[in-house]
Design a protein around this nucleic acid. Structure first.
Lengths: 250, 250
DNA sequence: AAGACAAAAAATGAATGCAAAATTGGTTGC
DNA sequence: GCAACCAATTTTGCATTCATTTTTTGTCTT
């Protein structure tokens, strides 16, 4: 087919309204950045697939300039990688990458717990306790999806309680990189590990109540470490079943 | 013909060689990114100053497109901020920002220590010990510059010993953001604090020798916390003496 | 004389155009 | 028949151009 592109035809100038409301991004490249980031994080682009700029441009209804700016930012965030003169590809996460990411997440949450113990209010602890009991309910009902949601909210609450926006941003960044893996790994979690995680969460809550910063730091790190082990095991099983991307490069 | 850049004259195709050798950046925007980042980190641009794109373009001998791409990346890294339709400004670090950054650095180093204890070799520990004694020499000779250099290398060695490239990159990013402040704060360090830091470093080395991950994590965090306190105190003195940027916005 | 409004100048944001590199397809030689 | 080489198309990278917004300056009114 002749991709003439005589006229764009598709006035996609106002489609982002449905996503998450207008965050403070009024500029076009900012909007594109948010949309593309969600698009990548949600896994709409196949792993390691090469996506021509033109195609994305038509898809988003913009020219290449703001798109390329957004791609550069996503590359800086570690979501995609830019091969010189060879376009952008969604970043392939090998086992080593995932191990590293989980460890960094563990370190950040560990830090968040330590900091939170210094400044957290009784109300915040009560709120987290409430989430914990909700999560326990989901656990009893074997509702994995609900459990996962509350689980995320608990960890986010701890990070929020640290009152450190820099930490929060970094945490969100790393969380975005492994979101897909985290989700699937949680889904594949075995019953025993699930019970283990619940016990760990109780230890977390206990340390948090006593504002034992150093202890909470340790418990959180170990908790995330165990998550990492589970994720790696799950990934090994999946890759063993379908080793479609054995070689790193394309 | 009002060509903004009538005679480029400067073949800036090979100027970044001095920095750290050719990192894998062959593209123009990549080179520009490295140069601009160093330029900002080294403090060549006044704090919060508005830098017109044209000026930077002429300075670097390129057009606005690759420059803007580099600016977007630097903004994503937190070094500058991009006001919509109002240009880029070097990011102003208020006291709160510095506190947050020091805490995140503390968390990352704390993590690095914990991870390092799992995989560090005897040779690496020996190397760090050697650095430590060198640093002690600089301390005895009251050589602040040499002390600062070795100190940085020790902390970098611990991060490197964690064998986690993701952590290393994040650490480098945050370190770049507060490099200037860290340096000046170290220079302003009082004698007593200096001795305190030396004792803390000995405790770090001790925990590292015993591969006591959790303990090293605590010690490193406290060490960085004390650094933070010193930096904040120094900053308060400086700002007290010359409160040129009292208001946050311009 | 001081403040407000308007117009001009400058700067940012986005799009298009152009050159270089890469990938693809076809052809030729062995 | 297969591999290597070359041309054509696609794609990336950068420069230039156009439109919108901001800022500045000058004038007019109160």
């Amino acid at each position: 087919m002749k991709s003439a592109i005589p006229e764009t035809g598709v006035p996609i100038t106002q489609p982002a309204t449905g996503q998450g409301g207008e965050r403070q991004e009024a500029s076009l490249h900012g909007e594109i950045l948010l949309r593309l980031r969600d698009h990548v994080v949600e896994g709409n682009i196949p792993d390691g697939a090469r996506v021509p700029e033109r195609q994305l441009c038509e898809m988003l209804g913009i020219s290449r300039t703001p798109l390329r700016e957004a791609l550069k930012v996503l590359a800086a965030e570690g979501l995609i990688e830019l091969l010189p003169n060879r376009g952008a590809r969604v970043r392939q996460l090998g086992q080593r990458d995932i191990e590293e990411l989980f460890d960094v997440m563990a370190g950040l949450e560990s830090l968040a717990g330590r900091l939170a113990c210094e400044v957290i209010t009784d109300e915040e602890i009560t709120a987290i306790e409430r989430l914990h009991y909700d999560m326990y309910g989901h656990y009893l009902h074997r509702d994995m999806h609900g459990y996962f949601q509350i689980n995320q909210r608990i960890h986010e609450s701890i990070v929020a309680a640290a009152r450190n926006e820099t930490l929060r941003t970094a945490y969100a960044n790393f969380a975005g990189r492994i979101r897909r893996i985290r989700y699937s790994a949680n889904f594949a979690r075995k019953r025993q590990r699930w019970a283990e995680a619940m016990r760990e969460h109780e230890a977390i809550l206990d340390a948090l109540r006593r504002r034992a910063g150093s202890e909470l730091s340790d418990v959180l790190f170990q908790h995330l470490r165990n998550k990492r082990t589970a994720a790696i095991e799950h990934l090994a099983e999946v890759q063993d079943a379908a080793p479609e991307t054995a070689s790193q490069d394309g």
